[in-house]
Design a binder for these strands. Structure first.
Lengths: 346, 346
DNA sequence: CTGAAAGCGCTTACAG
DNA sequence: CTGAAAGCGCTTACAG
């Protein structure tokens, strides 16, 4: 193992100077810097990160906490975040959590264990943040939910505007002639913190604006963010409410399960039941039928999240809470219904 | 921060003894052990891993190298490996690589940077291992390919027997009456090291045993392990060889892309073209039609891989090269063809 | 069985 | 601008 000591000896400078070169301290002569860097290159020297971190009292790799094992959407975004971070030379640790577990507690534990430089949360329940996030003091970013109202000084957030997007979905379906619309996914809890809540809240407003009543007990069914969750919830809601002509699954993973369930009930998409998803994952572009969905800009989410975190880890940099734009991608899974009302008004 | 010093003071023992308790050394009195453990619990003390690793000259987290970003199969297995490792209290780092990049070089770099305790390779090109793996000296496990013939003393491997499984697929299709069979996925290279090669080699043998000639140029099309790769390769092979009645995609991700391509060509699965995949990922159970496929036992793969690695990291433990059993899962994507030959022989 | 002490490879005031 | 030295939190011969 080459150490900083060897570099010192070889370059003719002290280990203090070598360390300063490595860490880009300003007060090193050009000559010393050049010489030391040369030796470092020759020896292919890599500083020992354990020693460095021991000394600096900080910290291990940036940690990504993925909340929702089975949610395919997170897989895509995880990859992007990981790629971004690696480009910046940052090491990355990943922890997968069940969709219902407490991500903030998990982060607190990790802090005790290895003091990560920072966290990126992929998905998060605001309720857990409210309860315990004050115990975390490293810079964090929450992706796909907004932390704007929480007021923590070390938590940025980037998300699709779920309220607007939920609104857009229902508005779209209604304009396509649907009025008997079912929603599946997320939990029915009114806490206002679960990932799906804002989406559903947007739906509510759209229904209202169109003068259509939304009966939660008949038109909503909770579901895990998984294909099997979507499969089961679609079956349940369609059985309890056979009038439904369109289903909004608040995640593509759920939607794909739902389409399979509809098929297994002897019905077809979109002829008997239209389905629209949320996320815009790759599988949605290859499913049969192709899934209509809200496309979240994973690239922007990942890029902004990583940039923000890095800036705040390395410099004094202000927090940010931003929405990234979304778009409704039309596939083949929603059909137009000519309603009587429509016809008469035309 | 509580340190080992605090525990020493609080417990009335020296830091040496505390350290021995933490590391389960035998030569500690029962009394000391009890007392120290009590204080550790009270203080919720976590040893500083940087200091520990600095001292032990070893090492950072076990690192999983995922080769093939877009291959959904790896996502499932990654999760399981991760879960297993976490259960054993091991920290985990993940690196995603493109399917065509050099995973061994990547591992070598990581060794220089942070000396991981070990690596788990999800997918691997034996050629790269042959070339450079001797530069890695930590315990490693290769999953989904066999390293039995490589003879490295620090590399175990666990895999489905790709040869047998490839054979089983073709045998199955032929028994279903198909003779014009196309294969997509992997690379055509004869190097014998790519992940898909053994699968295709198994296919060849099955064709031979059934007395059916296999014309690689007309019946094989390479493909990335991605949905879009499958989409394009299916289109290409079906255009160049319209006689094909069944397609074997050597990965489910590829198969799902292929089914979509067939649909877009105005044909349907399985009426016009049968499709069979390989992997048994969850999406295969929810696709329309449900995909027939070789189910790899990801649970066993993950469990055995992790156990083996941990054993070899912590003890002198022999290498292993094992096959895990597979099964052919029938979905809805393969139809039976009544061939003339079949009829006459019956 | 236990303690005192050296040392892992680095960073950073401190003094010059 | 540079060097000598203390110290980060731990482990592990060594001596008893």
């Amino acid at each position: 193992m080459t150490t900083i000591k060897d570099i010192a000896k070889l370059s003719g400078y002290s280990i203090g100077t070598v360390s300063r070169v490595i860490n880009n301290h300003p007060d090193v002569s050009e000559e010393a810097r050049r010489r030391v860097e040369e030796v470092i290159r020759e020896q292919n020297f890599q500083p020992n990160s354990n020693a460095k971190q021991l000394k600096q009292q900080s910290n291990s790799a940036i940690t990504i906490i993925v909340k929702g094992n089975e949610n395919m959407f997170f897989e895509g975004i995880l990859e992007r975040v990981q790629a971004q971070l690696k480009e910046s030379g940052e090491d990355v640790a990943v922890t997968f959590l069940d969709e219902y577990s407490n991500e903030v507690q998990a982060a607190i534990q990790l802090c005790a264990l290895r003091k990560p430089k920072g966290f990126i949360f992929l998905g998060g329940n605001l309720e857990f943040f409210r309860m315990d996030f004050d115990k975390i003091d490293v810079p964090c970013v929450l992706l796909t939910n907004t932390a704007a109202d929480l007021g923590f000084s070390n938590l940025s957030s980037f998300t699709t505007n779920d309220m607007d997007a939920g609104y857009a979905v229902i508005d779209y379906l209604i304009k396509k002639g649907h009025t008997k619309i079912g929603i599946i996914g997320g939990s029915a809890s009114k806490i206002g913190s679960q990932i799906g809540f804002r989406r559903i809240e947007g739906c509510r407003r759209a229904f209202e604006d169109h003068g259509i009543t939304f009966d939660e007990s008949m038109q909503f069914e909770p579901s895990r963010f998984s294909m099997s969750g979507g499969y089961e919830s679609a079956q349940r809601i369609l059985k309890k409410n056979p009038e439904i002509t369109a289903l909004f699954a608040i995640g593509d993973t759920i939607a794909i399960g739902a389409m399979r369930a509809i098929k297994d009930m002897g019905l077809s998409v979109p002829e008997d039941v239209s389905v629209i998803g949320y996320d815009g994952i790759e599988s949605a572009r290859f499913s049969i039928p192709r899934l209509s969905t809200i496309h979240q800009d994973t690239d922007a989410l990942a890029r902004k999240g990583v940039e923000d975190l890095l800036l705040r880890i390395n410099y004094r940099h202000p927090l940010a809470h931003e929405d990234v734009p979304f778009s409704l991608m039309e596939g083949e899974s929603v059909k137009t219904i000519e309603t009587k009302k429509k016809r008469s008004t035309k």
